[in-house]
């Protein structure tokens, strides 16, 4: 009892220690590193494809405006590869990686039989869950930054850099362009917290890590499909993926905030609903493994 109370008093440090050890465990996994590697490869792939396609002469304007957002500007300004790479990875690669990590967070431990031992430590279940969620969110941020950085490096190597033109037609300085790229990366990372919370909730439901990951990725795909059906128009504003591409609004001049705030609000709502559902489930469940 006295030990627990001592632990309770030094809890901020303790929580930090728990968070650090969780982070280390997560980022030392080969699986996590492989996921990050795949994410880093996507911008390189896009960059090389665009480079080969245009032959590097920078004149092909992407004719007709097909393809992912911003792709027609890449040849003229490598900075745009950051935006294109995020637009390409956000619908599937990024949330899938987050779904894998989030789905594994609790169920994986239960599956490996390590969850009991974690709970033996005087941390409390709520705090353990919070730490898990914080770790998943840290992964969201790291994954997004990996994509953005890889895109920036690839863009700088393959294409010229310069003052970018916003999609409203005005020109901004390169430094401001970088700031906006960073802001966009942050918004993209925040766009993923809804999926992260959903994945964590699914993870508390089962003892099988694989089942939790598969369910999360399955739900993700289902939601994306629902978002494509015009008949379900009324439902769309409530799907967590619906406003994802609104990050592009940060490249307007002035910035168009309507959809951005809608997106962030929706993510916060998903985080609150599924986060508390995960808490309700996790704190009340029998841990047998």
């Amino acid at each position: 009892m006295s030990r627990a109370e001592t632990a309770g008093r030094v809890s901020p440090l303790w929580t930090f220690g728990l968070f650090r050890s969780e982070l280390l465990t997560t980022f030392r996994r080969w699986r996590t590193l492989a996921l990050l590697g795949v994410l880093a490869a996507v911008p390189v792939l896009v960059g090389v494809a665009v480079r080969i396609e245009t032959g590097g002469d920078g004149s092909a304007g992407g004719g007709g405006g097909g393809g992912p957002a911003f792709i027609s500007q890449i040849t003229n300004n490598g900075l745009f590869l950051v935006f294109t790479a995020l637009a390409v990875t956000l619908p599937f690669f990024l949330p899938m990686a987050v779904g894998v990590v989030a789905g594994d967070a609790v169920a994986g431990e239960a599956n490996a039989g390590t969850l009991r031992y974690l709970l033996v430590a005087p941390a409390g279940r709520s705090r353990l869950l919070l730490t898990k969620y914080a770790t998943v969110m840290a992964f969201c941020l790291v994954a997004t930054l990996v994509v953005a950085l890889s895109a920036l490096i690839t863009g700088a190597l393959l294409f010229p850099l310069g003052d970018p033109t916003t999609i409203s037609g005005t020109r901004i300085g390169f430094a401001e362009g970088l700031v906006r790229a960073l802001l966009i990366a942050l918004v993209v990372a925040l766009s993923l917290i809804g999926v992260a919370a959903l994945g964590l909730f699914v993870s508390t439901l089962t003892n099988s890590g694989i089942a939790a990951m598969a369910t999360t990725v399955g739900l993700l795909t289902t939601v994306q499909i629902l978002d494509q059906l015009p008949q379900l128009h009324a439902l769309h504003p409530y799907l967590f993926s619906h406003h994802w591409l609104s990050f592009a609004d940060l490249m307007r001049e002035p910035v168009y905030w309507d959809d951005l705030t809608k997106n962030l609000g929706l993510q916060a709502l998903y985080a609150a609903v599924f986060g508390s559902a995960a808490w309700a489930r996790f704190t009340a469940r029998d841990i047998t493994a």
């Binding site: 627990a4 809890s11 941390a123 409390g124 279940r125 709520s126 704190t283 009340a284 029998d286």
Partner: peptide, 14 residues
Amino acid sequence: MAPYESDDMTTAGE
């Protein structure tokens, strides 16, 4: 003791 109430509960549950 609030953070640990959950742990107590699972044992009391039986």
